[in-house]
Structure formats: structure tokens, C-alpha cells
């Protein structure tokens, strides 16, 4: 069963690679570079210290932005989830902010924080903070009331109900919110770097594209895809673990 899914999945991938390889011989080299030229490059960039420096900056920015967004989003989300009054006041503000396309703030962030990594971290933070907070709120609010009643009927205090019932019951949803947040941090940092920066994968991608270094462009893009795969896989595993299956 798993083998079958695995084989089918990779045969699609192989098919795409074939089309890619085949079609590139009919198109100009500046438009598309065949996999047979991209993959050798993809193997050699890992010994290029300059590339590793850029990669390090990107990953560092992603993790820092995510760490900040996760901590502040969780705390605010839990607080708003538990206190109805706070939630009634602030949740509409949060959802409105979330609906604004965040990229409109980026010029402002560049102006205030400069071309260096701080503007990217702030942008990624903005992108992921809202979904993390809003998911945490709804996770807490949607905890089945009867689960809470059971604990109350056994004499549990509010604090006990919070950390023995509300936290574990909402954990799977909270983790899926964190997964979304992490994915958005990746987007935020790379888009930020592409729109204007000095270091990072996004800068490499943007400059490769401007200089028509198509092979490099594809190679860096594949690195981004690898990061996305790792992020996606990690959040899936965490979510599954928290459901106890």
C-alpha cells in the first residue's frame, strides 16, 4: 500500500523531470535549463562557502522570526482563548490585520530596519504571528465543553483544567497553526530577500534571475523546495504525535 503510493508519487516526479529535460532542448537556454545541467550544479553549490553563508542567513532569519512569532502568538492566543472579554475586544482587530496583504508593510519595514536581515525577520514575523495567534484562539475556544465539565465534576481547579484539559485538547490544532506559521516564515524571509536585501537565498535567486543565470536560478529554487519539504514534514510529524496516533 505505502509502496504503491510511494512509487506513484515518484513516477509523477520522474515524468515532470522528463518533460522538463525534453522541452528545454526546444527553448532558449536563458528561459529554461534542463535538469541534466541543474543537478550537477545543485551538487557543487554545497562546497561554495559564499552560498553556504547566504543559506545560513536565510535559515537563521526563518528560525528567529518563527521563534518570536511562536512564543508571542501562543501566549496571546492562549490568553485570548481563555478570557472571553479580551477575545471580544481584540480578535476582530487581529483578523482584520490578518486579512491585509502583509507585503504592503514591507517598504515601511525596509525604511525603518534597513536592507539587512532585521527587515526580513520582521516581515516574516508579521506574516506568521497572526495565523499562529488566531489558530491558537480557535483551538482553545473549540475544546469540547464536556471534557471540561468532566474535570470540573471531579473537583479540578481552573488552573488544573487549563493545563490538564485545555492545553492537551487544543495541542493538535495549535501545532497545525505553528506549522502554517513556519511555512509562512519561509515565504516571508525569501520574499523579503528577493524584494530587497544583501544576504540570503532570496537575494541569490533574484540576482540569478536578473542576470539570466538560469541554471543557478533553478538550483537555488530547488534548495528552497527542500527547505519547504523539511518544514512541511516536521509539522506533520509533530501534529501526528500530539494526536497520540
Amino acid at each position: 500500500m505505502y509502496l504503491k503510493i510511494f512509487v506513484l508519487r515518484f513516477s509523477i516526479l520522474g515524468f515532470i523531470l522528463l518533460i522538463w529535460e525534453f522541452s528545454s532542448s526546444y527553448l532558449p537556454q536563458t528561459f529554461i535549463t534542463p535538469p541534466s545541467k541543474v543537478f550537477p550544479l545543485l551538487l557543487t553549490i554545497w562546497i561554495n562557502l559564499d552560498f553556504l553563508g547566504h543559506l545560513y542567513v536565510t535559515i537563521f532569519s526563518i528560525l528567529l522570526a518563527f521563534g518570536l512569532a511562536a512564543v508571542s502568538g501562543l501566549l496571546l492566543g492562549l490568553a485570548l482563548g481563555v478570557w472571553k472579554m479580551l477575545r471580544d475586544v481584540y480578535e476582530p482587530l487581529l483578523s482584520t490585520f490578518y486579512a491585509v496583504p502583509n507585503v504592503v508593510w514591507y517598504p515601511l519595514l525596509l525604511l525603518f530596519l534597513g536592507l539587512d536581515i532585521m527587515s526580513k525577520i520582521a516581515f516574516a514575523y508579521l506574516l506568521s504571528f497572526f495565523p499562529i495567534t488566531l489558530t491558537t484562539i480557535s483551538a482553545v475556544v473549540n475544546v469540547d465543553k464536556v471534557l471540561i465539565r468532566v474535570a470540573q465534576s471531579m473537583g479540578a481547579s481552573k488552573l488544573t483544567v487549563f493545563y490538564k484539559v485545555i492545553i492537551p485538547a487544543s495541542l493538535p490544532t495549535i501545532l497545525s497553526g505553528l506549522g502554517t506559521g513556519l511555512a509562512l516564515c519561509v515565504t516571508g524571509v525569501i520574499v523579503g530577500e528577493m524584494l530587497g536585501g544583501i544576504y540570503g537565498l532570496g537575494v541569490l535567486i533574484a540576482s540569478a534571475a536578473t542576470l539570466f543565470e538560469t541554471a543557478h536560478y533553478f538550483a537555488y529554487t530547488i534548495v528552497v523546495i527542500i527547505i519547504a519539504l523539511v518544514v512541511n514534514y516536521t509539522s506533520k510529524v509533530l501534529e501526528r504525535l500530539s494526536r497520540g496516533v
Binding site: D144, L147, V150, P168, S242, R243, G244
Partner: peptide
């Protein structure tokens, strides 16, 4: 108290 919903903790 036993409730209509078994309300066990899945975790």
C-alpha cells in the same frame, strides 16, 4: 458523574 458523552481524554 457519568455523562452521556464518554468524554475521555484522547491524549
Amino acid at each position: 458523574v457519568v455523562f452521556q458523552d464518554p468524554a475521555l481524554y484522547n491524549w
